[in-house]
């Protein structure tokens, strides 16, 4: 074996071991959970077990219209995510364009961002009523202000010499925005999207806790109220999978972007 082959083999082995350990850890957790519930080390009414969760999942799928709930949550998360992006992008551009405006609004944005948005959810119900509209507003509110601040400060960090370059080539502020500021911010925008998709999920679930008659958040609250803890746990596990899938989607967007920029053309 050459040194190079040795290196490749070692590298592959390392990554294989990592993957095996991850899967192993997960399977061990499931097995331990199942076993402790089976032998009564933990109360299966409160803590369920993997087999109970699976049965519950099938039952919910058939009898409790799980897909409908899942669909609503997904729709509300998607709408929130898109609206967060559109609103914060537009606002950040305005703030960048009008320096005075950004100075005026800065303290307000900081306060709104620091505020725990879940505290607002009950108010949203009073103002907007129950239903999807309130849930989407809750979803947006969690990420919006942080997103504006982060985008705007990204815009501001654009290399001043690159801006000077556009100016010396005869460009105006719109040229600076479209030719330098936005393209230079794309990596920042993508990593912000990764954060926002998670936050939109949090916001929507909080919204459904308070204002939903449908959705995963509703199932969790409903399950707690009627003491169907298997339903609660199953919903939470579905939520985990959903969060992971959404993150993966944004991540694959990032890969697509990176590939288009590093490859020729």
């Amino acid at each position: 074996m050459t040194r190079q082959e040795e290196f490749v083999a070692k590298h592959k082995k390392f990554h294989r071991n990592i993957a095996f350990s991850q899967i192993g850890l997960f399977l061990f957790f499931l097995a331990f959970w199942e076993v402790s519930s089976y032998f009564g080390w933990i109360d299966s009414f409160f803590f369920c077990s993997p087999s109970i969760v699976v049965t519950c999942f099938v039952r919910m799928l058939i009898r409790e219209e799980l897909l409908m709930h899942l669909g609503y949550s997904l729709l509300e998360i998607s709408i929130s995510f898109v609206l967060i992006f559109v609103i914060s992008f537009a606002t950040a551009i305005l703030l960048w364009y009008y320096l005075a405006l950004s100075r005026i609004l800065e303290p307000f944005l900081v306060v709104l961002n620091a505020l725990p948005k879940s505290a607002l959810a009950p108010l949203f119900i009073v103002w907007i009523g129950t239903g999807s509209k309130t849930i989407i507003v809750a979803g947006i509110s969690v990420a919006l202000f942080g997103s504006i601040i982060s985008l705007y400060s990204g815009f501001r960090e654009t290399d001043p010499e690159k801006i000077l370059l556009i100016q010396t080539l005869g460009g105006d502020k719109i040229d600076v925005l479209t030719k330098v500021v936005i393209p230079a911010s794309i990596p920042n925008i993508i990593s912000l999207m990764k954060v926002n998709i998670g936050l939109a999920l949090v916001g929507v679930i909080i919204g459904e806790f308070f204002a939903g008659r449908r959705g995963l958040g509703y199932l969790i609250i409903y399950g707690t109220q009627v003491f169907k803890l298997d339903m609660v746990l199953t919903s939470i596990i579905i939520l985990c999978v959903l969060a992971m899938l959404l993150y993966k989607i944004v991540q694959s967007l990032e890969h697509l972007y990176l590939r288009s920029t590093t490859l020729v053309r």
Partner: peptide, 10 residues
């Protein structure tokens, strides 16, 4: 300028 400021995304 001192640095060429070619845009890395172009």
């Amino acid at each position: 300028l001192q640095r060429d400021h070619l845009f890395p995304w172009r």
